[in-house]
Write a protein that binds this DNA or RNA. Sequence first.
DNA 1: GAGTGGTCTAGACCACGTT
DNA 2: ACGTGGTCTAGACCACTCT
Lengths: 233, 233
Amino acid sequence: MSKQERISWQAVQNEVRQRISQRDWKPGDFIPHEADLAQELGCARATVNRALRGLAEAGLLERRRRAGTRVTLNPVRRAEFAIPLIRAEIESKGQRYAHSVCLREMRLPPPDVQARMQVPANVTQLFVQTLYLANGAPYVFESRWINMTAIPAVRDEDFATFSPNEWLVREVAFDGGDFTFSAITASSDEAAMLSCRAGEGLFVLDRTTRHAGQVITSVRLVFHPGYQMHTRI
Amino acid sequence: MSKQERISWQAVQNEVRQRISQRDWKPGDFIPHEADLAQELGCARATVNRALRGLAEAGLLERRRRAGTRVTLNPVRRAEFAIPLIRAEIESKGQRYAHSVCLREMRLPPPDVQARMQVPANVTQLFVQTLYLANGAPYVFESRWINMTAIPAVRDEDFATFSPNEWLVREVAFDGGDFTFSAITASSDEAAMLSCRAGEGLFVLDRTTRHAGQVITSVRLVFHPGYQMHTRI
DNA sequence: GAGTGGTCTAGACCACGTT
DNA sequence: ACGTGGTCTAGACCACTCT
C-alpha cells in the first residue's frame, strides 16, 4: 500500500503558485480544470476549488464558468491598508497620545462638502478641528464635518475625553467610505498648526464615511511632515 | 411536507450581519457555535463555516479554536488599493500615454538603496529615470534601481517601446513587495521634471518588489501636483 | 446544448488553545 | 483532556456562459 497523504488546499495553492512562478503556466494560459487537477494532485475537487478560489481573490487567476481558469495577464497588484484609530497608531509606536479640540461650531458647509455629504444647502452642520499629538508634537490636524441630522447625539459632545475620531467609532456604526490620498503644500495656517514651515509638502487623507446610505462624516487629515504610510503585499 | 429550501452561505452571512448590525449580537459577544447555527438555520456546518470565515476575513468576527467566535470589538477598517500599470492608469482616464527615458546607466546604489535591495555594497546596479506623460503633460517621474544579478536580461533593454514599469511586469514574476506612501517638497530638479514650481507638495510612492526571496527592483514614483489616489470600502 | 466553476451536504478526522 | 473551529472527502446539483 502506498501511504495515503492528505493534500491541503494550501499545498495545492503552493503548487499552483510555483507553476505560475516558474512559467510552467504563463500569463494568459488556461490551466487544467478543477477535476483534472484534483485527480493529478490526488485530492478532492473541493480542495482544488478552495485553493484556486483563494488565488483568484488574490488576483493571480481569473475564473469563469464554462470558460475555465486562466493565469491573469496583468496581475492587478493590490495593497491593503489598515485604517487604525489615530490613538492606536500613535500608541503602537510607543508614543504618548493626546488631542486638543481647536474649534467646534455649527457652520454652513462649503459646496464641495455639501455635495460629498449629500446634505441640503441651507442646513448647518457640526464642524470640528482637532490636533492630535504624539509625545507632545503635532501628529495630524483634522478638520471634520459631522452630519447632525444623522447623528443628533453629537450635539452634547465636547470631545474632551474621546476625540471625534474615537467618539464616532464607538458610537456609530459604519458600513462604507471613500478615501482619497494626496499631497498638499502647507499653507501658513497649516504650518502653524503642525509646527512646520509654510510650503512644506504634507500628506493628506480625505475620508467620507457612510452608514445605511447616509453620510456620517467627512474629514480631512493633514499629517505632519515626514509622515509615511506603509503596506506590503 | 415543508418545502426544502437551500440555504446559501451568502444568506447565512446576511443573517449574521443583520444580527450584528441590530445589536442582537454586540461587539465582544460570543456568537453560537457553528454546529448550533447550522441546526438553527437548517444548513450544513460547512455552509456556516464558509459564511463565518468570510466575515472573519472581513474583520467583523474573530474566531479561535476552542474559544469560539466573537464579534470584533474595534473592527479594523481596511482599504484596498489597486496598483495599476502607469500606462493603464493614464489610458483609463482617456488620456494619451507616453514615456521618455531620461537616464540609463550602471551606478553604485546609495547605502539606503543597497539595504533595501539586499545587494553587496561594491556592485553597480542599473539605474533608470523615466518620465511618464499624460496628454503630453508630466504625470509621474520614476527613479528605478534594477537588480542586475537577478535580471541579467535587462542589460540589453533600452525601454524605448516598453517602459521599465511595463517591461518588468511582462518579463519578470513578482511575489511580494513593500509600499510606502508619503509627501515631499519638490526640489528644483523634481520641479523641472514635472513642470511645476519648486517647493510644491508632491505625492510619492516608494516600492520595492521581490521574487523568490530576491529584490527585483526598487523604485520611487514622484507624481505631478494634484495627483490623487482613491479607494473605497 | 454542454462543459466548467460554484456551491451544498453529511460525515469524518484533525489541530490547537483553553481549561 | 476536551471542545471548537479548520479542513478534507465524495457525491450531487446548479448557474452561468460559450459555442
